[in-house]
Amino acid sequence: MKMNGNEIKPGNIIKHQDTLWVAVKCNAVKPGKGGAFNQVELKNLLDGRKLNERFRSAETVERIRLDQKTHTYLYPEGDMLVFMNAENYEQIYLQADFVGDQALYLTDGMEVEVEFYEERPITVALPEQVILTVEETEPVVKGQTSANSFKPATLSNGARTNVPPFVDAGERLVINTNDGSYVKRAD
């Protein structure tokens, strides 16, 4: 699907320089002299490179639509992670580096969204929040009761995060998978 360069918005995936890019930031610029253009910060979906590019309204780019398929996380195998397609039960093997830091939050049976371009996996999206148990944390320091004080804690998946002083070992917490931060106590 073709689109004009001034229509690119953050989150759009485009084909540029024979590879796939996602628009991270877009800024419409109307200089006093010359034609208007769209200053776009792009991130390469395949290798993570960044690029700043100017697109004029007369230029056209190809907008790419990715196929989203629900997969279930099964288990790690060496440095690979095994996922199963929820519809046809086919298994795919992805490098742990491909999933990145979020691989730490994968649990057996977790459903994730895998986006494909021409049958090649491009991204893996985990649920925004997971429930984990606090394995150990420091005791509360007397007098440290201000609203913004936090203490370090180790979670059941081995991750470390900061939690409020009232959280003790053994409690179940809701954790944000994007940055590993404490959200709230689990019900």
Rank of each mutant, 00 (worst) to 15 (best):
H71P: 00
A169H: 11
R120C: 09
L173P: 10
T154V: 14
Q129S: 13
V99G: 12
T145G: 15
Y75E: 15
P164A: 03
S146M: 12
D187L: 12
R49Q: 14
F83W: 05
E90Y: 09
Y105G: 01
R185G: 10
T154G: 00
C26I: 08
Y73S: 06
E113K: 13
N85P: 01
G143I: 07
T133G: 08
R56T: 09
G100Q: 03
T145Q: 13
S181K: 11
V141C: 05
T137E: 02
T161W: 04
L46N: 07
V29L: 03
V29G: 06
V130M: 01
L74V: 06
T161M: 10
P152Y: 00
S146K: 12
E171C: 09
L81A: 04
G180A: 03
T19F: 07
G48C: 04
V40W: 04
Q17F: 13
D79C: 01
A28P: 14
M110W: 08
R65I: 01
E119A: 15
M1Y: 11
Q17I: 08
G109K: 11
L126N: 05
V24Q: 09
E111K: 15
R63F: 10
G5C: 00
V163W: 05
Q17N: 15
R185S: 08
V141K: 15
G109L: 14
I14W: 03
Q91L: 12
G5D: 06
G109F: 11
L173C: 09
Y93I: 03
T177C: 04
F83S: 02
D168I: 13
K33M: 12
G100T: 00
A96L: 11
E115H: 08
